[in-house]
């Protein structure tokens, strides 16, 4: 029996889909059987972030409406041992599915998979209600900005009201230079306000844009800082105790050497 994990945020554009893709790949790389579910009906994107957009035949709405079997709609990602994607419908809207149908769907998938990761749409309306309906755990993604943190707080309240047993935070796109200058809230500032357990911190990283351009999640790139952060988060999801990444960036070997000789 697997687990249903919903990745949500309230505000759009904070990195839900990128997080979903990276955690899905991360868990699959660790030998778990994973299905990624794009719950953003009408605005599907997880398929392009994963680089699987050319292989879609059926979608989530087709499954729910009985036009095809679940197996026919699942796209197998051949790069990883056991990773599947259930794409959202693009030509329908959020009202095409209701929370009961979504719960039934994720319940049936967790019989077969270790992890069912649901990429939630932005907002708090029907799409959000659909996405969280079958969730065992929730991951709230935010960035260190006033608007994103405010929305995250609202979402945390709604998840609490929906009695989801565990909700944890990912602070995404943090910039060490701005934090050091005092122009960006750091992790402590954000947790001070949100009072929620932290699942991880992900630095702002160009490699994410490059990875998305290619349709290959950054976690597969061993030199990507954001990829390493997602890898640590994957470990924590599996219950392993990994220390938080020093997102402020320790001095590297050469910087240390230079400062030793008084060059910087």
């Amino acid at each position: 029996m697997g687990e249903v994990l919903v990745i949500t945020s309230g505000k759009g554009g904070v990195g839900k889909t990128t997080t979903s893709a990276n955690l899905g790949v991360g868990l699959a790389m660790k030998g778990k059987k994973v299905v990624l579910v794009d719950a953003d009906i009408g605005l599907r994107n997880l398929d392009v972030v994963m680089g699987l957009e050319n292989r879609i035949v059926y979608d989530l709405v087709d499954v729910v409406e009985g036009h095809c079997r679940l197996k026919q709609a699942l796209i197998r990602d051949k790069r990883f041992p056991e990773l599947f994607l259930l794409p959202a419908a693009q030509t329908r809207d959020k009202t095409a599915v209701n929370p009961e149908q979504m719960k039934k769907l994720t319940d049936s998938m967790k019989e077969e998979f270790d992890f069912v990761l649901v990429d939630c749409p932005a907002g708090i309306e029907q799409g959000f209600k659909n996405a969280i309906s079958g969730a065992d755990r929730a991951v709230v993604v935010t960035t260190p900005e006033v608007s994103a943190v405010r929305d995250a707080d609202r979402i945390i309240g709604l998840l609490e009201a929906a009695e989801i047993k565990s909700t944890k935070l990912i602070l995404n796109r943090i910039r060490a230079d701005m934090v050091k200058r005092g122009d960006m809230m750091n992790l402590d500032d954000v947790t001070d306000i949100l009072a929620i357990e932290v699942l991880g911190v992900v630095p702002d990283d160009e490699s994410i844009v490059i990875a998305t351009n290619k349709g290959e999640p950054a976690i597969t790139n061993p030199i990507s800082k954001a990829g390493q952060a997602f890898n640590n988060i994957t470990e924590r999801i599996l219950g392993n105790d990994v220390p938080l990444m020093n997102y402020l960036g320790d001095k590297g070997f050469f910087a240390k050497l230079k400062s030793y000789f008084g060059l910087s």
Binding site: V146, D183, D189
Partner: peptide
């Protein structure tokens, strides 16, 4: 620092929101 401003504004707005 601008982050302190962000924090205090957030705290205020969340008091009302919550």
């Amino acid at each position: 620092k601008s982050k302190d401003l962000a924090k205090s504004r957030l705290k205020l707005v969340l008091t009302q929101d919550r």
